[in-house]
Every structure is written in structure tokens, then in C-alpha cells.
Design a protein around this nucleic acid. Sequence first.
DNA 1: GCTACCCTGATCAATTTCTTTCATGAAAGC
DNA 2: GCTTTCATGAAAGAAATTGATCAGGGTAGC
Lengths: 153, 153
Amino acid sequence: MKEIDQGSLRLLRLLQQDCSLALSDMAERAGMSQSTAWRKVQELEAAGVIRARVALLDARKLDLKLCVIAHVTLDDHHEEAIASFSAVVRNHPEILECYALSGAFDYMLKIRAADVESYETFMTRYLLRNPHVRNVVSSFVLREMKASTELPL
Amino acid sequence: MKEIDQGSLRLLRLLQQDCSLALSDMAERAGMSQSTAWRKVQELEAAGVIRARVALLDARKLDLKLCVIAHVTLDDHHEEAIASFSAVVRNHPEILECYALSGAFDYMLKIRAADVESYETFMTRYLLRNPHVRNVVSSFVLREMKASTELPL
DNA sequence: GCTACCCTGATCAATTTCTTTCATGAAAGC
DNA sequence: GCTTTCATGAAAGAAATTGATCAGGGTAGC
């Protein structure tokens, strides 16, 4: 893939802050003509640098008051165990993020739920019941100090 | 704030997947007229349910190959220590997310960097050098199994 | 029943935004 | 020197958004 020039970087920075800006606005702020801005955005989209444009919602106003960071250890790391765990992660929208980690735990999950009770239900039904899951340590989020999707460019 | 009806929920689900859809498209998929869809989106935006519309970028294609989950413990929890740590978090775009947690650690950070070297530099310069930071445990992300911004609605 | 109220869908005009097309100028290759 | 290529900006056309208006259909209260 081609190098990403300074102009495109400026557009990306704007887009990850607010993609509802008009092209003419973005062009002006990025110091280029509207045509050029349009072409660059098209390129970035085609190249997959821009993965998606999404709306970010307020979890509180949608009654998802609980956010949990869970650390998971599997019993073994055979294909079947990993596949089984992956399926759980994939199929449950309550699990927003999941990363395989180096270090003390195998996985870190970020989970959102309405309250402690519904979290507990979800937890025991889908994670603890899974035969490959050895251990889950849940930490409740007391405060979201930062929750950005902006990559440092 | 008012209750959120089923129609609005359908719009929100669509918007968190792809906010570049035309209003007419969204209206059709959500099973309502364009006028109604427009009014509902306006409401949701005014009520702050829709916080922002952003572009999600591909970290790999932008040469941010490293993602780290770091757990931080502070020396004490006086105002000054928290303020000092908060400032570090706020001022560094490499730190994408930061949550104050219950449990064994005070904070969990998600950090992105180009490579191990630049991470190491960032780490020692801004976190380990902070007098209020007692301990940092870094876990490298081996695989991003899921990284969604969609709330479960 | 009747009224008032609210939500909905249809329609329309004005504006804004997106997309294509065309022409220009700079740089590279022959 | 000439051509080709490429990125750019201006302008025009196509499409979408915005905001208002009006009418129909529930429904709750009187």
C-alpha cells in the first residue's frame, strides 16, 4: 500500500474526531481543495485505513450502567478450547472487547451490562459454565477516565 | 429524559454499525418513514444519546502494531496523586482508554504504540517517572479477538 | 360520543453536500 | 524538447439533508 501523506493524515485526524463534518469543512481545515479531500478520503476508504464510520452512544443514557474488566484463564490451549471460547466472545454483544494477552492471564474482556445482577447472570451462564474456562477475575469499573477511539497519529 | 422507543433503538443499532448510511436507507431498514427517522435522530442527538460520529481506523495500516494493557497502582490516593496521574492520561493520545478499577489494581490502561521500543520510551518517560505511580504491569496484546464500540441494545 | 393531543407519514422547497468532469501545472521519463 | 503521468483545484451536476407543513389515525380524558 502507498505511503500516507501529511494531507491524508490531517484528514484522518479530523475524521476520527468527527466524521459528520462536511467535506468542504474538512478540506478547509486540512488545507486542501474539496476535490482533493474527497479523493483522499475515497482512497483511504478503499485501502481499508478507514474501517468504518460509527456513532458512539452514551452507555448511561441507555441504561448500561455497569462496565467490567474481566481476566480469563483457560484450562488448556488446544484448538478446541480456543475455538469454544472465541465463539462465546463472538456471539455475545455484551463483550465489547477481547484481547489475548501475554503475562498472568490469557484474555482480557471488557463487558457492559445493565447492572450487577444481569452481569452475574451473563457471567455464570456463558463464561463460568464453559468447560474450558478455568478462572475469571472480574474488576468493576469505578470511573471511565478516558475511552477514546482516536489513534495517535 | 424520555423513554427510548423500539424504533429509535433500531436506528441506534444501525447507527452504531454504520453512520454513513443515508437517512432514507436507515428509515427503510428501521421500518419507518424518512420524516420519522429524521425526527428521531434529531432527538437522540439533542438528548446526547448519540455522543459522536467518528471514523474507526485500522491501527496496523497506520503502523501502530503494538497494543498494551497496563495495570497501574498508585502510591497513595490523595487528590494530588490522582490529579497528577489523570493529567498524564489526558495529555497522552497513546493512552486510548483508562479505567479506575475495583480489585487488585487501581487503573487499567490501553495503550497503542508503533513498536516495543517506542512503548518502552513512552512508559519510562511518562508513567514510571511519575512520583505517584508505584507499580505498572504491562501485558502485550497478542491478538485482538474483538474490538467493538457497539453497545448491546 | 367527542375533543384534544401526540405520533406518524407524505410532500415539498431550500439548502447543503457529494460526486463527476474538465482543465491546468508540476515533475518524471524518453 | 516533448510526452506521459500524476496530483490538484474549479465548476457543474446529482443526490441527500434539512425543516416546515398538512392530514390521518390512535388514544387518553372528559
